[in-house]
């Protein structure tokens, strides 16, 4: 069996208590590499001229590095707080596309690997009562009963028998006479 064909399974997990008190942007460092002369980096150059300063102002917690290099394709590398590093090529992408990719990268928490959720919810505290045991909701009177017990084994919800009805009628008759 080729295990690489299957998704890794896991649970839905936010970064350590992120957003409970305050929200910390998980994207920490952004490295933009591009070439000053090649056509593949045209969109990246446009992005740096038009949007990069604005982007850096809006995301002040992100450190942005811009690294020109000769005759190499443009690349975006995002590094996250949990140590994940996401590399993506921006070859032949125009500046609008790059802006969209960057906004996606800055919203992510660094989980670059897709996982199959074993459950669609997750809680650190599954149960306050604790798991079920055979003694949960058990009548404590059972501790003092000697099994087998005649009354406990009897069938429930039986209709009244003719004998019981006769005895009941006689008892009622007696009660009315006494009154």
């Amino acid at each position: 069996m080729n295990h690489s064909q299957f998704l890794i399974s896991g649970f839905l997990r936010p970064p350590f208590y992120n957003g409970v008190g305050r929200q910390i942007n998980q994207l920490q460092r952004l490295t933009i590499k591009f070439c000053k002369s090649h056509g593949g980096s045209k969109g990246m150059r446009d992005f740096i001229e038009n949007h990069l300063v604005n982007y850096a102002k809006e995301n002040q917690s992100v450190v942005v590095y811009v690294k020109p290099r000769r005759h190499r394709s443009p690349v975006i590398v995002a590094e996250y707080l949990n140590g994940d590093r996401r590399w993506m090529s921006a070859q032949n992408r125009n500046h609008e596309e790059i802006l969209k990719w960057l906004s996606l990268l800055s919203l992510q928490a660094g989980d670059t690997e897709p996982i199959r959720y074993r459950k669609n919810w997750h809680t650190d505290c599954p149960s306050i009562q604790g798991p079920w045991t055979p003694f949960t909701h058990k009548n404590p009177a059972f501790n003092n009963i000697a099994f087998p017990d005649k009354e406990l084994g009897k069938q429930l919800n039986m209709p009244e028998t003719a004998t019981e009805k006769l005895l009941r009628l006689v008892q009622e008759q007696k009660n009315t006479k006494n009154e």
């Binding site: 099994f147 087998p148 017990d149 084994g153 069938q155």
Partner: peptide, 22 residues
């Protein structure tokens, strides 16, 4: 019959109800 060894009786903590009246 109802002659069950004591070591078996000691384990019993529950009784299943009968399905019909005796």
């Amino acid at each position: 019959d109802d002659k069950v060894p004591q070591e078996v009786l000691d384990n019993i903590t529950n009784q299943i109800r009968q399905l019909r009246p005796v």
